[in-house]
Every structure is written in structure tokens, then in C-alpha cells.
Amino acid sequence: MAHESERGQYLDDKEEIRQLLAIYCFSLDNYDIDSLGETFTEDGVMDQGPGRGGPIQGRAAIVAGVKQRQARFERTCHQLGQSMISIKGDLGEGVTYVTAIHKDWNGHVATAYLRYHDSFKKVDGQWRILRRSSQAMLVQGFEEAQWNWVVRIKPEGI
């Protein structure tokens, strides 16, 4: 019976983390950056790449940075894809695929195909993002130098 209850808790925790990821995107797309900040631990770290400030630590600094970077967009749409999530106790790890479409105030549309590499921590019974590194697989309409890039294995003979 204990095994079933542990499995049930594990599945509940995974669902709570998936909800956390969805809340992050919903808040970002609504430009409700204060709510987005609540998805992070107080000492959380976000790294969106060298052209976007590199690693930023602390909830207040994350909120300030996201507000500044996202203000240039009239609209965004962050669509989550598959996630691989593992949990051990009150800590978790995850990789989630994201398609992020951005329209600036002049009408220019750009898209980033990303992976969120996350560490999670359960704080006072609630899952939060402890560390996020956004890694780009492909971008269209953005400057390429600003990203953390996924390192892909090079095929033999190329």
C-alpha cells in the first residue's frame, strides 16, 4: 500500500510541475510578470542566454529582467510541448520543449524553438522553479548571438 501511495504522490507532483510550467507561460503571454515571478523560488536563477543578460539570480531580479525584455513585444505565445520530468523527494529536474512566437510593436514576428532545462524545488508544499536555462534549437527573426544553443551531435562524415 505504501508503494501505491508513493506512486500517487509522484504522479501528483509531476502534474503540479506541469501546471507550474503552464502558469509560467500563461503569465508571460499576459505580461503578468509579477505572477510569473511567483513560479520561481526566492533565490531562483534564470538564464535566457548571453544576449538576454545571462544568468540572473533572485525572484526580484528575474521579474525586473523579464519585464524589461518582454516590454518590446505587443504579443507572445509560448506553446509547451513534450516534457521529461524526474522527481526525487522535494527536488525535480525537467526538460520541456517550447515554441515561442513574439510580435513586436512594429508588427515584426519572430519565433524561437526552445528547450527549458529546469530544476524544481518544493517550497512550503508548492513546486517552484529553482533554476531555468532556456536553450535554443532554432530561431527565426531573432538575432542568433543572444541564445544558449542546444549542442547537437555532429553526424559522422560531415
Results as ranks from 00 to 15, higher is better:
Val63Tyr: 10
Gln68Arg: 14
Thr39Asn: 07
Arg128Val: 05
Val66Thr: 12
Gly157Trp: 08
Glu15Lys: 11
Met84Thr: 11
Gly94Arg: 05
Gln68Asp: 14
Glu93His: 10
Thr99Ala: 11
Thr99Gly: 01
Asn106Gly: 07
Leu130Asp: 13
His117Arg: 11
Cys25Trp: 01
Gly8Asp: 04
Leu11Lys: 03
Arg152Ala: 12
Leu91Asn: 09
Ile158Lys: 15
Ala60Pro: 04
Phe120Leu: 07
Ala145Val: 00
Gly157His: 10
Asp90Met: 05
Glu15Gln: 14
Tyr10Met: 11
Leu36Ser: 03
Arg18Val: 03
Leu91Arg: 15
Gln68Ala: 15
Gln79Gly: 04
Asp13Thr: 03
Lys154Leu: 09
Trp149Leu: 03
Tyr116Asp: 06
Asn106Val: 06
Gly89Phe: 06
Arg128Asp: 04
Thr96Gly: 05
Ala2Gly: 12
Leu28Ser: 11
Gln126Ala: 09
Thr111Pro: 01
Ser86Ile: 00
Gly44Cys: 06
Trp147Leu: 01
Arg75Gly: 02
Ser86Asn: 09
Gly125Val: 04
Asp118Tyr: 08
Asn30Arg: 15
Asp34Gly: 03
Gln57Met: 11
Asp12Val: 12
Leu36Trp: 09
Glu74Thr: 02
Ser83Glu: 11
Gly54Trp: 00
Ala22Thr: 14
Leu20Met: 08
Leu80Ala: 08
Glu15Leu: 14
Leu130Cys: 07
Val66Lys: 04
Glu16Gln: 12
Gly49Ile: 01
Gln19Cys: 00
Gly89Ser: 10
Ile87Leu: 05
Met46Lys: 00
Tyr10Glu: 11
Lys154Pro: 02
Asp47Ala: 02
Ser119Thr: 12
Gln19Val: 09
Asp34Ala: 13
Gln9Tyr: 01
Met1His: 13
Phe26Ala: 07
Val150Asn: 02
Lys14Leu: 12
Leu91His: 14
Leu11Gly: 04
Ala2Leu: 12
Gln135Val: 14
Asp13Cys: 08
Tyr31Val: 09
Ala61Asp: 14
Arg18Trp: 02
Gln19Asp: 11
Gly65Ala: 15
Lys121Val: 10
Asp29Val: 07
Pro50Phe: 02
Gly81Phe: 05
Arg152Leu: 13
Asp124Cys: 04
Asp118Leu: 10
Gln79Ser: 13
Met84Trp: 06
Lys154Ser: 12
Ile158Gln: 15
Arg132Pro: 08
Ala100Arg: 02
Val95Trp: 02
Gly8Leu: 15
Lys14Ala: 10
Ile158Arg: 15
Leu114Arg: 03
Ile33Asn: 13
Leu11Thr: 05
Val98Leu: 15
Val151His: 11
Gln126Ile: 05
Arg18Leu: 13
His108Asn: 08
Phe142Thr: 01
Gly92Asn: 06
